[in-house]
């Protein structure tokens, strides 16, 4: 008789977890599993050894972004916080008016960006803050790979902004409401999701003679 080894099932390695609240994001800051929860807490640690860390309290945790090193959260309390493997939350910023943090983005290079309504703020690894005001609400944020340039999705297009220069943001126009944005790993493509069931993409020029090219993806 030939015995066939039973193939290992992936489900044997799955541990169900009851987070007790809507999960906004899952991340591995410093290699430790972390769940960002809508009730304002972060659940940190391996199953059985978890801790609930209250980050935003009753105002709720609204948005989160992560890098290999940390989890960055934005709350209904107007605060942006960062949390690493130790679970000690550090406040990056506190909005004096306590407005909802609508979007947050984090770059592995240490830059963080967030928005409240039309105002977008960045904080680099040295803690320097830069702010711009857009003509419509910033719906989604994404850093280019090097962490120097930020893409912002908004009504009627996306803006590409270098926070450390005086140059006004480059405007990529496309009519409609753009809800979120992501950047390809080579930094050449910007793709937004839209209020209509569609994605819109832009290919950025790689040399001065090239023009921005559009990609329409409706579904």
């Amino acid at each position: 008789m030939i015995s066939l080894a039973t193939p290992a099932s992936l489900t044997q390695h799955v541990t169900p977890l009851d987070a007790g609240s809507h999960v906004i994001a899952a991340a591995w800051p410093g290699g430790v599993p972390a769940l960002a929860l809508a009730d304002g807490a972060v659940m940190l640690g391996v199953p059985g050894l978890q801790r609930r860390i209250d980050v935003h309290g009753g105002a709720g945790l609204l948005v989160a972004a992560s890098t290999p090193g940390r989890l960055v959260t934005g709350g209904g309390d107007g605060r942006v916080c960062s949390l690493g493997a130790t679970g000690e939350p550090a406040e990056i910023h506190r909005d004096p008016k306590g407005g909802w943090i609508d979007a947050v983005a984090a770059s592995p290079t240490g830059s963080v960006a967030w928005s409240i309504g039309k105002r977008v703020t960045t904080c680099d690894d040295k803690g320097r803050l830069k702010t711009i005001e857009l003509s419509s609400t910033a719906q989604g944020l994404a850093w280019f790979p090097k962490g120097y340039r930020l893409a912002i999705a908004h009504y009627n297009g996306a803006s590409l902004w270098f926070p450390n220069t005086q140059t006004p943001p480059e405007f990529l126009e496309w009519k409609g409401a753009h809800l979120d944005v992501s950047i390809s790993v080579d930094g050449r493509f910007v793709v937004t999701s839209m209020q209509e069931l569609a994605l819109h993409g832009w290919r950025l020029p790689s040399k001065p003679t090239e023009k921005v090219a559009h990609m329409r993806m409706s579904g």
Partner: peptide, 8 residues
């Protein structure tokens, strides 16, 4: 902020 979006 009462931001109105026109559909496309």
């Amino acid at each position: 902020d009462e931001e109105v979006f026109e559909m496309n």
